[in-house]
């Protein structure tokens, strides 16, 4: 097969995917997005022709979104595609997609002004978590333990130049047992999951959260699949929060997955699985 990979930085994950493609004897067509010029209404760009599919691997959200749209515009199947990247990139939309399909999500309120944020938080009850609707690696997420905290956070947010910080996404704080779960979905299956332990309330491995292998119950495997199907992508990272009341919530779904720590602690060749399962899917 002729397999493309759109990327901007070669991380461990991209190395592993490239190696998996080459090891299986497929032709690799790398698209280094920062060097790309895509002629939108010109069909003569041969490199884009006859690809069986392409992996979207840009670490930059906007490059991932744009390059996926451009490749799809040329008739190439992209994993994951534009709509999936868009819906996962916007936490507000992710929450709507999950909730409307009956996937349990933490109680979430969205408000658009300082006064309404305060009213919403009083109804939600403290602590509350305030998240940027676009954001990654836990950046700019804040926990307010009180109304004073929340007012400080909102003041910071409202002075940010990006207008999306004036969309205030508030969520109940889920009291986790010092960890959350990253569960990986690949075309209908859940090949691997990890716990991410941290003494902080944010458990992102990008912030120093420690990865350990996780064996998921049937219930959590089903929840992963249900969440992924609500979003619609082929390869997704689903974040699960175990609450002290015994409920499990889906907090986020990620469309360009990072998995180096998962591979390190589990020994699972996730890149190989991604390549094999996507080829199976494309051949159907």
């Amino acid at each position: 097969m002729k397999i493309g990979i759109a990327y901007d930085v070669v991380r461990d994950e991209e190395r592993q995917i490239v190696e998996a493609i080459r090891k299986r004897g497929h032709e690799l067509v790398p698209f280094y997005v920062p060097s790309m010029v895509v002629k939108v209404n010109d069909s003569s760009q041969e490199k884009l022709d006859r690809l069986d599919f392409a992996f979207e691997r840009c670490v930059s959200f906007y490059r991932a979104l744009s390059s996926a749209a451009l490749l799809e515009g040329k008739g190439i199947e992209v994993v994951n595609g534009y709509e999936v990247i868009r819906d996962c990139g916007d936490k507000l939309v992710t929450t709507i997609r999950l909730s409307s399909r009956g996937v349990p999500v933490p109680k979430t309120f969205v408000a658009f002004s300082r006064q309404k944020v305060i009213e919403a938080a009083r109804e939600l009850g403290y602590p509350v978590v305030v998240k940027p609707i676009f954001g990654s690696w836990g950046r700019m997420m804040a926990r307010a333990l009180s109304e004073d905290d929340l007012l400080d956070i909102v003041d910071f947010r409202e002075s940010m130049p990006s207008p999306y910080f004036r969309v205030h996404y508030l969520q109940e704080f889920v009291n986790k047992p010092g960890r959350d779960i990253r569960s990986f979905y690949v075309w209908g299956e859940v090949p691997v999951a990890i716990y991410r332990y941290s003494t902080r309330w944010k458990t992102n491995t990008a912030l120093g959260g420690k990865a350990e292998p996780a064996e998921l119950s049937e219930e959590l495997l089903d929840l992963t699949i249900k969440a992924a199907e609500a979003i619609g992508g082929g390869i997704l990272g689903v974040d699960l929060l175990e609450s002290s009341d015994g409920r499990v919530y889906v907090s986020e779904v990620n469309a360009v997955i990072e998995f180096r720590n998962t591979v390190r602690v589990s020994g699972i060749d996730l890149a190989g699985i991604m390549v094999d399962k996507t080829i199976e899917q494309i051949r159907r």
């Binding site: 901007d8 930085v9 920062p34 670490v59 930059s60 959200f61 906007y62 676009f134 990654s136 690696w137 950046r139 990008a206 990272g237 990620n254 469309a255 360009v256 997955i257 990072e258």
Partner: peptide, 10 residues
């Protein structure tokens, strides 16, 4: 190398 930007990461 490019520095990490606001929209990087998952």
């Amino acid at each position: 190398a490019e520095e990490v930007a606001e929209d990087w990461g998952e």
